[in-house]
Design a protein around this nucleic acid. Structure first.
Lengths: 322, 322
DNA sequence: GCTCAGTCATAAATTTGTTTATAGCAGACG
DNA sequence: CGTCTGCTATAAACAAATTTATGACTGAGC
């Protein structure tokens, strides 16, 4: 058996993605018979059928589905290669791909990116917003901003600091529904919480409160929508102090519930050699550090004077130390 | 810029590997002008020069060197894909790639593989012997046998047990040079130890002994050569009890120095779905457990009756628990 | 029940890529 | 100092892939 052309893998991936030869052909800018030939050649080379033909399209076999992750790995390696090449040897410009959570990407990053572009006009940024953290391993991104410690080998990680979380509500909501006096009071309020993604809060919820989806009258997994709901006065939800302060939200029970969430910046070891990636890494490191500092200030400012310290109330459950 | 054909990446990798178009052409079964054209096309597509031509061959530029890891990632993904495909959907046969240390691969595995082939005649085995443990992450192997706990995410790891290490020497050496009475005595003997790879021993050497290359009169990083030297009566070296016993070696100071080394079996989570990989995983798991048990017996048997227990003397430095 | 939009498969024409063959160049060796 | 071996580069002959242009099929919608 001779090794199949790598192009065939790309065609395979396209057909798996689109579900038909014609659609895959459009995606790759090839013609449908070409894709048909590619699939046939790959089936021949691998000695196994990959699709069952039907007039509605190609249905992948078990084998083809098993091959998919590997083909995707090739695709992301190819994308990483092109990104690397885009910067030339060590030209200041080029494409850098940053991954972050939806929240960070939509609320925190935009201002930083504006500054980054001003400081390094040659650098083109790609943002990949998702909450799964495998991105770096599979080389789907050059730099990652994460709220958990990246524990992969061969990953260079820097802890930026910790961000304070707390219950918040809009002034309108509090005027309408009153202000809870203690944690037990929260039961009589409209709470906004996660839907399926309870894991995220597991380390944050204080031991006293049971963690059940039933606690929350409004459930949504998107942190951005979560914030929007709180801003709209829909109920009480957990927000970062800095973001909440900027949005004019009022902290609720900040002296009873105030977990800290670590912020990590990470990239592949190898990639630090690239000048533009190092530049983005340093810039984001600085900008995030500033942001964390402002967040801490916002948190302290909104607390009653008696308890003005930045010590976390529910910290150990979440973070490890740097 | 349109995406280059993936074949070009393969050609790039071949040229980087061989250092010349002609050699790369031989490797890939293509002709030299074809490779030349591929490189030119890739340089055009990426917009950056990749090689400086010379009559001695092609010298890669900085850019090309930066691209290399990504091209290699593609190559291993392609290899993994083909391995997966070789097994068909869930046929019992197919290729499985196992990585292990040189020592394990040459001394311990052969007998197991013979048994494995008897139990599963359809399975073809590839052995990749190296001591770096990135193999699994980069999908360069399906299953890994490691002496450290694999701490990567999305990796399925099973701790097989622990293997006892200890100083050993050949009967001939001991007859000639005498038997050391305590650790201090070792200074007057010919010790065999690592050359550059001191890390490996760091967790093993007892606290009393300073860890310097100067300790060792014979230095070699290959564990297999290490064992051969001990067998040849060249000096005293650290060996696994089981292997040493089988080779007719005599334990030296087993009651003073007896670290334990964990044995882990690991594979990617996804791959457990493949029937043949699961079969190999289970078989190796069982065989290694048997081996560890025999090693423990050998260790106990060769110790003076007074201290006959399998408890490690220098254990905590090395292993974590399952 | 008919048309229409979508699909895959096939055959001939064309474009593309690959090879063979040749020339030129630098260093190793007797 | 010439020869020999390695390499790259170029041009024309060739083989191979791709495309265009078909035909045949299925299911949705009127």
């Amino acid at each position: 058996m001779t090794e199949p052309d790598w192009d065939l893998y790309r065609s395979l991936l396209a057909v798996l993605d689109r579900g038909s030869l014609s659609a895959a052909a459009r995606l790759l800018g090839l013609s449908q018979p070409t894709l048909g030939h590619h699939v046939a050649a790959l089936e021949m080379a691998l000695g196994a059928p990959l699709f069952t033909r039907s007039p509605k399209g190609l249905v992948p076999t078990e084998t083809a589905l098993a091959l998919r992750p590997h083909a995707e790995a090739m695709a992301s390696a190819a994308a990483a290669l092109r990104r690397t090449a885009s910067g030339g040897a060590d030209a200041p410009g080029g494409v850098v791909r940053v991954t972050a959570s939806e929240m960070v990407g939509t609320v925190i990053l935009p201002a930083m990116i504006a500054g980054l572009r001003r400081a390094h006009p040659g650098i083109v940024l790609e943002l990949s917003l998702s909450d799964r953290s495998e991105d770096l391993l599979r080389q789907e991104a050059d730099i990652a901003i994460r709220m958990t410690r990246p524990l992969q080998g061969s990953l260079l990680a820097r802890k930026i600091g910790e961000i304070g979380l707390g219950f918040h509500a809009s002034p309108a909501y509090l005027a309408r529904e009153g202000r809870p006096k203690d944690m037990g009071d929260l039961r009589h309020h409209t709470l906004i919480g996660p839907d399926r993604d309870i894991e995220t809060l597991r380390g944050v919820i204080p031991a006293g409160l049971a963690l059940t989806p039933e606690m929350f009258a409004i459930r949504v997994d998107s942190h951005v929508a979560h914030l929007a709901l709180v801003e709209a006065g829909a109920g009480i939800g957990v927000c970062q102090f800095g973001i909440a302060a900027a949005a004019g939200l009022v902290p609720v029970l900040p002296d009873l519930f105030r977990p800290m969430m670590p912020v990590w910046l990470a990239c592949h070891e190898d990639l630090r050699a690239s000048r533009r990636i190092a530049a983005v890494f340093e810039f984001l490191g600085g900008a995030l550090a500033d942001y964390v500092a402002r967040d801490a200030q916002a948190m302290v400012r909104t607390m009653p004077p008696s308890t003005r310290s930045a010590a976390p109330l529910v910290a150990e459950a979440w973070g490890e130390e740097a």
